[in-house]
């Protein structure tokens, strides 16, 4: 089997870990994207400016890595209703579950938080089942 380590994924992942570590060490904050976005919708004192800066950094990062040859992919998805429904579910789900792939999957798992480990197992399993069902239905 010709399996090679996907170095870009590994390196990109390490950058995510570094980002989360820096944010927590210097500012005491959790690098959870759903939490950062949610926090901008219901603002608290001293919690807005760093969140805005984080989001601006995320958006601008694309222009930092593009000279290195990394580009955003072209998004091909012809079912806008499915995208809208997915967005609604992701927003509601991350709010109720208090985190997403970053907050639970990286920071919470890294801290060995019981809630995060369980949440990550549940959303990974659910997403895998959804993709499986979509395949069975003929690539809906």
């Amino acid at each position: 089997m010709g399996f090679t380590i996907p170095w870009q994924s590994l390196f990109g992942g390490m950058l995510l870990g570094l980002s989360a570590a820096l944010l927590m060490l210097f500012s005491g904050k959790v690098a959870g994207i759903s939490g950062i976005i949610g926090g901008l919708l219901s603002r608290q004192k001293h919690e807005t400016s760093w969140r805005v800066a984080f989001v601006i950094g995320m958006i601008l990062s694309v222009y930092v890595v593009s000279p290195l040859g990394f580009e955003l992919p072209e998004i091909i998805n012809n079912n806008i209703f499915l995208v809208a429904l997915a967005g609604l579910l992701v927003g509601l789900g991350t709010r109720l579950g208090n985190g997403c792939t970053s907050g639970h999957g990286i920071v919470g798992m890294g801290r060995f938080s019981k809630r995060s480990i369980i949440a990550t197992c549940i959303f990974m399993t659910t997403a895998i089942i959804v993709v499986l069902i979509r395949n069975l239905l003929g690539g809906l």
Partner: peptide, 20 residues
Amino acid sequence: LISGAILFGIGWGLAGFCPG
């Protein structure tokens, strides 16, 4: 926590997008 993770998982599996 549980229902939120399930709803998030469904949305993630439908579009392949998560917040980050």
